[in-house]
């Protein structure tokens, strides 16, 4: 169909306007917090428990350095924290999905897992490397950086506070790398503990997503 030049401008403007509308609606429709208020509170609590258990069972009481033979205690504690956190978030997402009659394994869920995978893979590689080279007591900053990376990627499909949370972990991780190991452990309490709890309270209050 042929059109006069006078007709072109409004058509072009309308096309731009409709493309904007499509983009906005698509963004709004796919974004959700991924971590609800209760999830944040519980995940933060598991991390704080993990920090306290590590402090009393994996660190020597006098020298405050990680004992070589306590590496497996440390691994067991943090694998348990990871398991409890993943299970908590899964159950909370399942509950939220059930409320609207959706299955927890949605296409969005699959995308979130894909987005988080590189960060978690990096964290696992760092852990194996530091274990193999006997530098496991420096793990804390690397975990924060890897987790921050995963959260930033998830944030692309999620609400703004998730991206903010991801960047907070990245910055805290960068600082922690230069701290002594025992300070790094306390930073674990600040980041994986307090950051998640603050996020949980903020999400619960502002977005009413408990």
């Amino acid at each position: 169909m042929l059109h006069t030049l006078e007709e072109e401008e409004p058509r072009l403007e309308e096309a731009y306007e409709n493309l904007r509308l499509i983009r906005e609606v698509m963004e709004r429709s796919t974004k959700h917090s991924s971590l609800s208020g209760v999830s944040g509170l519980l995940v933060g609590t598991w991390a704080v428990i993990g920090v306290l258990l590590t402090r009393y069972y994996a660190y020597g009481s006098a020298e405050l350095t990680l004992k070589a033979n306590h590496v497996w205690i440390l691994a067991a504690i943090w694998l348990a924290v990871l398991f409890c956190s993943v299970l908590t978030d899964f159950l909370m997402n399942k509950r939220a999905a059930a409320e609207v009659g959706k299955h927890v394994f949605s296409s969005l869920g699959a995308r979130l897992i894909q987005a988080a995978a590189p960060g978690f893979t990096l964290g696992s590689v760092f852990t194996i490397y530091l274990l193999a080279t006997g530098m496991i007591s420096h793990i804390w900053g690397f975990w924060m950086l890897s987790y921050g990376l995963a959260i930033c990627a998830v944030g692309l499909f999620s609400v703004r506070p998730v991206i903010f949370l991801g960047w907070s972990f990245l910055l805290a991780g960068a600082v922690t790398l230069f701290l002594p190991p025992i300070s790094g452990l306390w930073m674990m309490g600040v980041t994986f503990g307090a950051f998640h709890i603050c996020y949980g309270v903020f999400t619960g209050i502002t977005r009413r997503e408990w």
């Binding site: 042929l2 059109h3 006069t4 072109e8 096309a15």
Partner: peptide, 15 residues
């Protein structure tokens, strides 16, 4: 405008 008041811009929102 080219071509006796018509341009050769093909698709439109009418289509």
């Amino acid at each position: 405008p080219a071509t006796d008041g018509k341009s050769l811009i093909g698709p439109s929102l009418d289509d």
